[in-house]
């Protein structure tokens, strides 16, 4: 009945992929890490999205807090308030984090980061060291907070067979309208394109309608970019201050200014106008090193292109950052970098 397809998986292949960790600790590697070590690692790798104290940034997940809120109107579900098993945290950090650079943390680093997350949830003291040996001793507050799907009993009354067809209600009133909240995304762009097409003679070439819609957008962008460029030329202090905020996203990997050291990314002091890929003591990607040898200079224009979409600018750059979406943020962060020249 077997077809004899496939080949036996080698032990080292299974070991490379079979990384999941179960609640009873199955799959945990040897190792340990302290809250103190975790604090530093968290600042480097996690704080950009999850905040210095695991409190979350913007819409990124909050990892700490929320104790006792699960029955509230808006429960705050965190590792401390909601997650039933510590193994889930370890496994997730190990296999899926840091976001954009997953599967790069060593087991000791994962133990340390998990220890710090526990600490930020007030579940352990600041001198705590998490290891394979004490892993199962950690009490997760919501471990008993889950029940297995009981819809078939708790909702047995939804199996009605013959529902009401007439006179099912005495009165019907509208109690809530989505338009009042007004949070539905606008369909403007597609709709405008559609309207323009409807309005134009269908015999027109497709390119005409597209060009008409794209022109104003392109003009807007150019208009926005021009004054920003002028401001950077004179280093506007307000823009530098804005840039300092944006630079928080870079801080996980880059240092700048007095006492800066290479971290995941190279020191950025003096980078504007400087040659690419040549900072001493930093191991660049092959492509970045090559670009430097070929004479790439980090002019404001080149930096802006790189920071907007690093991987599009240089496919094999080691920088795992996705890019700054807002033109204003790019200009601001360049102004900030420039202030260290």
């Amino acid at each position: 009945e077997k077809l004899g397809l496939g080949r036996p998986a080698l032990p080292e292949e299974v070991a490379a992929w079979n990384l999941d960790v179960s609640p009873d600790g199955t799959g945990l590697p040897d190792g340990s890490g302290s809250v103190e070590e975790g604090d530093a690692l968290f600042a480097d790798y996690c704080a950009v999205c999850h905040g210095d104290f695991a409190e979350g940034v913007d819409n990124w997940p909050k990892l700490a807090g929320g104790a006792g809120t699960l029955a509230d109107k808006d429960p705050l579900k965190t590792v401390g308030s909601y997650w039933p098993y510590l193994s889930t945290t370890w496994d997730y950090v190990h296999r899926s984090m840091p976001f954009g650079n997953a599967q790069t943390l060593a087991p000791d680093e994962v133990y340390a980061i998990v220890a710090y997350i526990l600490y930020s949830n007030d579940l352990v003291e600041d001198d705590f060291v998490l290891s394979k040996d004490n892993f199962l001793d950690v009490e997760m507050p919501n471990k008993d907070g889950f029940i297995i799907d009981d819809r078939e009993s708790a909702e047995a009354h939804f199996w009605k067979d013959e529902p009401c067809m007439t006179d099912c209600k005495e009165t019907v009133e509208i109690t809530m309208q989505a338009a009042v909240l007004d949070v539905t995304p606008e369909e403007t762009k597609a709709r405008k394109v559609q309207e323009m097409m409807d309005a134009t003679n269908p015999a027109n070439k497709a390119g005409d309608a597209e060009a008409k819609t794209e022109e104003p957008a392109a003009a807007d962008e150019a208009a926005a970019a021009e004054p920003a460029a002028e401001e950077t030329a004179s280093v506007d202090p307000a823009l530098v201050a804005e840039g300092e905020k944006v630079f928080k996203k870079c801080k996980a990997c880059h240092q700048i200014g007095d006492g800066a050291k290479h971290r995941t990314g190279p020191i950025l002091t003096g980078i504007v106008g400087h040659g690419a890929g040549v900072a001493e003591g930093f191991k660049y990607s092959k492509d970045m090193a090559q670009a430097g040898q070929d004479g790439l200079i980090w002019t404001e224009e080149e930096l802006a292109a790189f920071l907007t979409k690093p991987k599009a600018y240089m496919k094999k750059t080691k920088m795992s950052f996705a890019g700054l979406k807002k033109e204003d943020d790019v200009q601001a962060v360049i102004a900030y970098l420039k202030s260290f020249n």
Binding site: T26, A71, P75, K77, Y85, D91, F146, I147
Partner: peptide
Amino acid sequence: QPVQSREETSKYTDTLANGTSRK
């Protein structure tokens, strides 16, 4: 045993009014 990964504990579980959650 179930692995109890992130997507079957912290997400894709349904919290009821009393604070307990269905998994």
